[in-house]
Design a protein around this nucleic acid. Structure first.
Lengths: 224, 224
DNA sequence: ACTTTCAGTCAACACTTGTACACTAAATAT
DNA sequence: ATATTTAGTGTACAAGTGTTGACTGAAAGT
C-alpha cells in the first residue's frame, strides 16, 4: 500500500513537466526533437541529402513510422528548419539594429555578434550552408528567399544614409546582396576552421570586416 | 569459311577505334565514363552525397564491382573530379589572361566568358557548388584549395597595377578572395535561373560586373 | 461516463545499398 | 608459344531504405 502510494505519488513528481503537457504540446515536442535530430546529424558531418528518415527517427527516440505524423518527407522537415532559421536570424538582426553602433552592418560589433551566433548554433548553419547550394531545388530556393529578405531589410535600413546619396535603388540592392552574400559565403569556412582552431573566430571577424569595409568604400564612391 | 572470314574481317572495322585501344587507354575511358556518370547525375539534380556507387556504375554502363578497379569509394571519385575541374578552370583563366582587355578580371569580357563557360559545363559547376559547402570535409577542403589558388593567381596578376599601390599584400589577398568568392557565390543561382529563363545569363553578367566594379572602387580607395 | 481522436508502436514488404569472392577472357610480358 | 596480369562479369549476402496497414492507449470532446 505504502509503496504503491509512493510510486503513484512520485511518478508524477519525478518528471514534473511531462504530466502537465497537453497532447498538442507533446506533439510539438517530438516534432522539435525530430528537427533537432536532423540538425544534429548534419552538424556531425552527415549531408542532409543522405540522411535517412529512419536515422532521424532513431535519433529522436521515436519509431520510423511516427515520422509521418509530423512531416511527409525529409524535404518538408528541411523547409521547417529553414523557417525556424529565418525566424532566429530576423530576431538577431532586429536586436543588432537596435544597437546605435549598427551603421549598415559594417560595424565591428555586428560581425562579432554574427560570428558568435554562428558558433553557438553550429548545427543550424552547417545545415544552411549545406542546403543553400546542395539541397533540392525547392530547399535552395527557400534559403535564397531568406537571404534576399535580409538584403532587402538591409537596403531599406541604409537607404537614408547621406553617404549613399549617389547610388540609386537598384544598385543599392545589389550592394546589399553583395554584403549579405559575403557574410554567408565564408560561414562554412568559419565552421570548419573553428572546429580545429578556436582562434579562427577572430581571423574570420577581421577578414569579413575588411571585406565589408571594402564594399562600403566602393559603395560610397559609386555613381549610379 | 567465307562467312567466318567476313565476320572476322568486319568485326575490327565495325568499330574502328575500339580495337586500336591499348588496355590502359580503355581503362582510362571507362574511368572517365564513371566520372561523367557521376557528374551527369548531379547535373540532373541529385546530390552527390546521396548518389550510390551502383547508380554511377549503371549509368557508366558497367557492373557495380567494376567501380573498385578505378576508385576506392565515391569520395575518391569526387576528388578526381575536383582535380579535373581545377585543371579546366586554370586553362580558362590562362586564356582569359592572354586577353589584353583582362585588367584584373573586372573586364566585361572575363565575366562573360566565365558565365558562358559555366553554362556549357553545367554538370561540373553543379557539382562544385554542391560539394563546396555540402561535401565531406575532405572534398570541401579540396575545393577551397582550388579557389584559394585562383585568388593567389589573381593577386599576383593585379599586384603591379598602379591604382593598387596604397594596398598592402595581405589586404590585396583579401580583396582577391572577395572577388573570387563573389564570382562563385552566385554561380548556383545562375545555374538554377538559366534553366528557367535563358535571359538570366545577361542579368547575372550585369549584376556580377557591378559587384566587381564596386569591389574595385573600394580597393582603389583602400589605404592599408 | 462514453466516444472519438490520434501520436506513437509493431510487423512486414519490396528494394537498394556497399562489398566480398570466384571467375573469364583478352591484352601484355616473357 | 606460353605464362601472367587485370578490367570487367556474375553471384551472393547482410544491412539499411521508404512506406503500408492494423493496432494501442491515453488525452480531448461530448
Amino acid at each position: 500500500m505504502d509503496t504503491l502510494n509512493v510510486t503513484l505519488a512520485t511518478s508524477p513528481l519525478s518528471d514534473p513537466v511531462a504530466h502537465m503537457l497537453t497532447r498538442d504540446e507533446k506533439k510539438a515536442q517530438t516534432r522539435k526533437s525530430l528537427m533537432d535530430a536532423a540538425l544534429a546529424l548534419t552538424g556531425e558531418g552527415s549531408n542532409f541529402a543522405s540522411i535517412s528518415l529512419r536515422e532521424v527517427a532513431k535519433n529522436a527516440g521515436v519509431v520510423p513510422t511516427s515520422f509521418y505524423r509530423h512531416f511527409n518527407d525529409m524535404e518538408e522537415l528541411g523547409l521547417n528548419i529553414i523557417d525556424d532559421l529565418g525566424l532566429m536570424l530576423r530576431k538577431l538582426m532586429r536586436t543588432a539594429r537596435q544597437n546605435e553602433d549598427y551603421l549598415g552592418a559594417l560595424a565591428r560589433s555586428s560581425v562579432e555578434v554574427y560570428a558568435n551566433y554562428v558558433c553557438t548554433h553550429k548545427n543550424y548553419f552547417y545545415f544552411m550552408e549545406q542546403v543553400r547550394t546542395g539541397g533540392t531545388p525547392i530547399l535552395r530556393k527557400a534559403i535564397r528567399n531568406e537571404l534576399r529578405y535580409f538584403a532587402n531589410e538591409l537596403a531599406s535600413d541604409i537607404r537614408p544614409l547621406e553617404s549613399l546619396a549617389t547610388i540609386n535603388d537598384t544598385d543599392l540592392d545589389i550592394v546589399c546582396q553583395l554584403i549579405v552574400g559575403t557574410v554567408f559565403e565564408n560561414t562554412i569556412e568559419l565552421l570548419d576552421q573553428v572546429e580545429i582552431n578556436p582562434g579562427y573566430l577572430d581571423t574570420y571577424t577581421e577578414h569579413t570586416l575588411k571585406k565589408l569595409r571594402l564594399i562600403w568604400l566602393g559603395a560610397m564612391a559609386w555613381r549610379s
